[in-house]
Design a protein around this nucleic acid. Structure first.
Length: 564
RNA sequence: GCGCCUGUAGCUCAGUCGGAUAGAGCAUCGGAUUUCUAAUCCGAGGGUCGCAGGUUCGAGUCCUGCCAGGCGCGCCA
């Protein structure tokens, strides 16, 4: 990690340099990566701690406390000394550091300079990452399950972009195959009904109302002109009409949910380019496929699957897996080093197959696929759980959800729990404008600060706020320090959220930060005509806090309002 | 039966690569408003981290076994 890459992450930069210094100061047997820093819990433990002495005492044949004291005195007589107002050796061997005011000053300056870029990093390990998510079949509207996947996926993409990676967000479109055919047949049936024909609705057809609505629209606009077509042609035409219409709606819903895709990858094109056949040919050469019972099988058991899987069914049609293999090969060929797939829990049995697909491309690609499972969300209205059944066509769509609770609350709630945990989503709570609702609690910070600045403009119309260099740091109090130290943790929070694929760390951070602010706000007056020097300092702190809240909410795709 | 996931306060959940006395919010109870937005704040009570072993300076976190719940085990997607 270069100095430049940590430009906006003061804390990591400082701690890394410190680790480098200490590892050199000890003996050659310790490297800077041996030093880790943890956030201490509880009072009187400083701002950041090191457990190095406990970890390495045995290895260095020293007592932990002695080792800790040794480290402390090394720091004391080094330039790093000025970064800490206190270095405390605490039994059984912790080193507790308290940041000095110079660090706090530097933190504020960093945030003011960085602005929207605060939190941005340059991980710079050259890896390119592709996130594939939602990828819902374009056979019906997006549901609440897709909504959570969309919110999680999009937030992760934003996190990785902020961390400095080259990222691509992709939607894989199953725009061919049996399900699209079924959809076309369903639409055709509804259409024929409108034309007055008596028809049997397909057994495995799509019974949702959206199909009937679309049929009505076609009938109204074009009349019964399709009655003359052969059934084969009609199914083809109606499949295409249905798919086009539904897919447009899906794209619009995603856009309205502030979910941005860089590309939509078509399965149909994959087929038309002959990639599926090619792939099976290639696998044949590697002796990874064989015929049995009239079907063609892929030896996924070579890659830790518990049984082999069919690629070509005995009726000659191909399975999803047959398309997924060339699709994932294509991702690798496009130069992506990490393939992240975000899927629902119903797909988890599918993971070994996909890993086999990636593994079959070559030893060097094994391990490049990372499948994240996003669990379902259960909707509640207060205490009552909303039952949903996709089969019967009874479900709450993404669109309805957004209409009811809005994009901000929707996105925030979906990412506020670990992706791998079930999520209870209370529609009533999401709509509430009270502190129980974490979205409002966090947004309110931004609105309150904006309000302070409005009031400031009003009360001191002719005054211009002094620049950063002219502030009086003697006026800083413990409450101010505490607040800024929380801001200092922001870049590290984003990094840890990204690397662990856990966006809820951002919401937890923001809620904690909001709590610190509201408490501060209640206790301390910002605008103070009797003490302009203190007011100036605090206005700068408030501005930095608003920046962090805004940047944090932006990662979540949630707006930071000026007024509420 | 096999595999994956989950189990932390009454409820919903945090808990970073194994760190110090396990934390929030809701709910309950008691307080705060001549004020930059009370959409807020302050305080109190509330725990066998599912159970039992193990690893070690140290375990909610890692390992093994068990218990409970969810999901997956198709020539469906």
């Amino acid at each position: 990690m270069t100095q430049k890459s940590r430009k906006y992450d003061l804390q990591s930069s400082l701690l890394e340099d410190l680790a480098g210094f200490l590892s050199k100061n000890l003996s050659g047997s310790v490297i800077k990566e041996d030093f880790e820093f943890i956030y201490p819990t509880g009072p009187d433990k400083g701002d950041i701690s090191s457990n190095f002495a406990l970890k390495k005492a045995n290895f260095l044949k020293k007592k932990p406390l002695d080792l800790a004291r040794e480290l402390k005195s090394a720091i004391k007589s080094s330039p790093f000394s000025s970064a800490f107002s206190c270095i405390d050796v605490a039994p059984p061997g912790f080193l507790n550091f308290t940041y000095s005011d110079s660090v706090i000053r530097d933190a504020l300056q960093t945030i003011e300079e960085a602005g929207d870029n605060y939190g941005k990093q340059n991980q710079d390990d050259g890896r390119r990452i592709i996130f594939e998510f939602v990828s819902a079949n374009p056979t019906g509207p997006l549901t609440v399950a897709h909504a959570r996947q969309a919110a999680v996926g999009d937030t992760l993409v934003r996190l990785y972009k902020k961390a400095g990676y080259l990222v691509c967000a992709e939607y894989y479109v199953n725009d061919r195959g049996v399900q699209i055919q079924n959809l076309g047949k369903s639409l055709l049936s509804r259409y024929l009904e409108m034309c007055g024909k008596k028809v049997d609705f397909p057994d495995d057809g799509y019974r949702g109302e959206y199909v009937t609505d679309l049929a009505r629209k076609i009938y109204q606009e074009e009349g019964d002109i399709y009655l003359k077509k052969s059934e084969e042609d009609a199914v083809r035409i109606f499949s295409d009409k249905a798919y086009q219409s539904i897919f447009q709606d899906i794209k619009k819903d995603l856009k309205d949910f502030r979910v941005i895709f860089d590309s939509f990858f078509s399965e149909k094109e994959l087929e038309e380019q002959g990639k599926i056949e090619q792939t099976i040919g290639l696998l044949k050469k590697k002796d990874l496929v064989y015929e049995k019972d009239g079907a063609v099988w892929f030896r996924t058991t070579e890659y830790q699957d518990d049984k082999d899987r069919v690629l070509i069914k005995s009726d000659g049609s191909t399975t999803y897996l047959a398309s997924d293999i060339p699709y994932h090969w294509d991702k690798l060929k496009r130069g992506f080093d990490l393939l992240v797939n975000i899927v629902g829990p119903d797909h988890h049995g599918y993971i070994p197959r996909l890993k086999a697909a990636v593994g079959s491309f070559g030893k060097e690609h094994e391990g490049k696929l990372n499948v994240l499972i996003v669990q379902l969300a259960t909707l509640y209205r207060g205490e009552t759980q909303l039952r949903m059944s996709t089969r019967a066509g009874e479900f709450i769509s993404l669109r309805e959800l957004v209409r009811e609770v809005g994009v901000d609350a929707g996105r925030y709630f979906f990412v506020s729990r670990r992706p791998n945990s079930l999520l209870d989503f209370d529609l009533e709570l999401a709509k509430k404008q009270t502190p129980e609702n974490p979205v409002f609690y966090v947004q309110y910070v931004h609105a309150r600060i904006a309000s302070i600045f409005r009031k400031y403009e009003e009360s001191f119309p002719k005054r211009s706020l002094p620049g950063w260099k002219d502030l009086d740091w003697e006026k800083m109090e413990d409450d101010d320090r505490f607040l800024v130290k929380a801001l200092l943790r922001f870049p590290d929070t984003l990094r840890s959220a990204a690397l662990s694929f856990e966006p809820q760390r951002v919401t937890i951070y923001l809620e904690n930060l909001a709590g610190i602010f509201h408490s501060y706000y209640n206790k301390n007056k910002i605008l103070d005509d009797s003490n302009h020097r203190k007011m100036d300092l605090r206005l700068h702190i408030m501005r930095c806090l608003a920046t962090v809240i805004r940047n944090g909410l932006d990662i979540l795709g949630v707006e930071a309002p000026e007024k509420m």
